[in-house]
Write a protein that binds this DNA or RNA. Sequence first.
RNA 1: GUGGGUGUAGCUCAGCUGGUUAGAGCACUGGGUUGUGGCCUCAGUGGUCGAGGGUUCGAAUCCCUUCACUCACCCCA
Length: 440
Amino acid sequence: MNKITLQILKGTRDFLPLQYILRKRVIEIIARTFEGFGFEPMETPSMEYAETLEGKYGEEGDRLIYKFEDRGGRKVALRYDLTVPLARTMAMYHVEKPFRRYQIAPVWRADKPQKGRFREFWQCDADIVGSKEVWADAEVIAVGYYAFKNLGFNDFTIRINDRKLLNGIALYGGVTEKEMAGFFRIIDKADKVGWDEVKKELADKNFSAESIEKTIALMVDETQGNRAIQRLKTTLKGISSAQEGIAEIEEIQRCLANLGVDKRNILFDGSLARGLDYYTGPIFETIIEKPRIGSISGGGRFDSLIGMFSGNDVPATGTSLGLERIITVMEELAMLPMTPTVSQVLVTVFARDLFGESLSVASELRSAGICAEVYVNDDKLKKQLDYANKKSIPLVIIIGPDEKEKGEVVLKDMEQKIQAMVPRQELVNKIKPMVVASSR
RNA sequence: GUGGGUGUAGCUCAGCUGGUUAGAGCACUGGGUUGUGGCCUCAGUGGUCGAGGGUUCGAAUCCCUUCACUCACCCCA
């Protein structure tokens, strides 16, 4: 036999049942939250024509798209996010608008992996297409907020800004449209490296001293919170795009209050820029302090993206939760109650000639909607109980010759360490309430 | 793309400045206990020390190369 090195590609992972069951539960909570807001599930292919994806994310993003040729020489790519494929479908099909959909699926980025970052990872997106009102932005921010709440998060901050405001600031500082992306990428780092470092970096990138002074003066004392908004409002009085952005942010804040979103989890942040090119209006991301892991969700308005496919702009906004980071954080904070099995009952096999009995008992339980597992080796009872124990299966059934004779089974509660003889006909009724009690 | 760290049993690791047959805990298998579990106890299985080359009488240990993993930066979820 050829001995090969067993390994999987960098930045990818196998999910064994232990981890997969957990992931599934997290996904279910998020999906339920999305559906609670009326978002409907949708799915698109993991592969797209390369040109569908290219030129949407900006220079940095485009470089990280997985691209290759198929056997017909077509240039194909693995999807980089779920937003661009959504935009493609919105240009291809007619749907009733305003349209809400969610999609929970893997995406691929040829990035260098590190903590909370993978090459294959899952995003949970909820988007609204066909509304230019910031009400839609408030809804997608709120659905993210409630998803985190339902998962058990309390200490997180949703930072909010607006590309229109950023445009206004750039205009005010004499930064050209072409330079803007790079300019704000550096500004974005302010809370990490400090403003002095930001100034230095801007100077290195050949931004004029005047631009730097004017824009930084706008933000240097504080970039966050309502005082910062008010200051920007007065300083940027004559700049309409800035005023528009500020008005949007203020309306979103009002909407969020009505949506029951706690003010303490929301923060205006004038230095928030976000890297992807396609954002046009409000932008937002969720960060947590405790384990430092970057953002656990991000999103914003992308009013021109669909137009890149169809020629006609359709307003749209959406949010994207990062499943891997959420799970990484939940693991670190021990927020995940662990039940490493789906079996609620283990039906043991007493001896070879009694295996048939075990099978029919299991079958009865299954018909009653109980997840029942039959032990499929001719091992000692001790070993079978040990197995149930290790897998945290709460109930065990034993059928020996005596039980068979009397038409009964032994029902054993592993946690309580008690057992009782139960007639076969009563088994289902007896076991049902126990199963309900033990499942969470 | 740039810069650090780490590779020894299935897992977590020990192995001092190079010295015979490479260790521990957990896990696994079997026994103590052939109709009952998580404890205890005894025994056992398991390693080309990431790979390749070099120095040396002698290398897990020193040097070089390479691969893999990991962390940080960039960017992002």
